[in-house]
Amino acid sequence: MRNKLLFFVCLSFLFACTRNAITGRNQLSLIPEEQVESMAVTEYKQFLSQNKVVNSAGSKDAEMVKRVGTRIANAITEYYKNKGLSNELANYKWEFNLVDSKEINAWCMPGGKVVVYTGILPVTQNEAALAVVLGHEITHAVAGHGRERMSQGLLAQGIQVAGNVALGKNAQAVNIFNNVYGPAAQVGVLLPNSRNQEYEADHYGLIFAAMAGYNPQEAVPFWQRMANLGGQKPPVFLSSHPEDADRIKKLQELMPEALTYYKPVSK
């Protein structure tokens, strides 16, 4: 029985892998993107209703988040259009909100639902660094990292419960969604790939920030500031991220490519 289950899991892995149109990497995909985006809308609205959203009409910071986010979104749209991949973003309805919280964090759900916490702004310090953060987080969404992690979670559960990989029931998908996007997402099978996803997010995040007219070189001092925060428990934004020195070294290696996309935009 165990051998049959393992065989089934292997088949599921092989036939459910798709090649990402932008990164070129094969990804496990057991859940349709449309379902993930629909779930994201529901969770996003619930999150906003339970947290203090800063009104952009009376806040320069909130207005900045929307401005930078919109420029990044436009750059991504242009990038995908130039690659003949506009359909990949057809269902994206971008939203950018600043939430009043000391937490040093920012994230983007599938479908373009973005939140920046006020706690990260003293670390970004300027629009270009914020653009680097948003480029990174939005890349996670457009590169299908959330769907990939959810699929890995389904596969991990299927190793224990026969048939669950193929069922894809909504209740199970919601549970996996919460595990992936919740603060306690600690499913062990996800961790080996998380750093690959982080490097992809760094790579394309730099490109998108540069295309939006922001100097990608601000990524290095930003991550240096993050590294200097210290403390035994890193900010949520750093969870499962590469070591600071490794990340900065990789960013420096990626910088020449990113700079080819950089065209400063006058304010």
Rank of each mutant, 00 (worst) to 15 (best):
W223P: 02
S12M: 11
A171Q: 13
P192I: 00
V116D: 01
E63S: 15
E218A: 06
S38R: 03
G153P: 02
L155G: 06
N215P: 01
K102S: 15
N3C: 00
H140V: 08
T42K: 11
V116Y: 03
P110K: 12
A210Y: 07
L11W: 06
P235T: 01
K250L: 11
N196L: 13
G205L: 03
A166C: 02
A16F: 02
I159A: 14
L89M: 10
K263R: 07
E243I: 01
Q186F: 00
H140S: 12
G112Q: 07
D246C: 04
P122E: 02
K249L: 13
F237Y: 11
F47G: 06
Y92E: 09
L167S: 15
A90P: 09
T23V: 04
Q197A: 15
E198C: 08
K233Q: 10
K250A: 08
N215V: 01
A106P: 04
A128F: 09
F7I: 13
A184W: 10
A209G: 09
P192N: 08
P256R: 03
Q125P: 13
Y204Q: 09
M109A: 15
A212P: 13
S86C: 09
T70F: 03
A131F: 10
E103N: 03
A57P: 00
E218I: 00
H140F: 11
Y92V: 03
A106H: 11
R195G: 09
V165K: 12
R67K: 13
N26P: 06
T77R: 07
R225I: 04
R225D: 07
L238E: 00
V41E: 13
Y80E: 01
R149L: 14
G24K: 06
A128R: 14
I138W: 11
Y199K: 14
M1R: 11
L130C: 10
R225T: 02
M64P: 12
N55D: 14
A62S: 13
E253I: 04
G188Y: 04
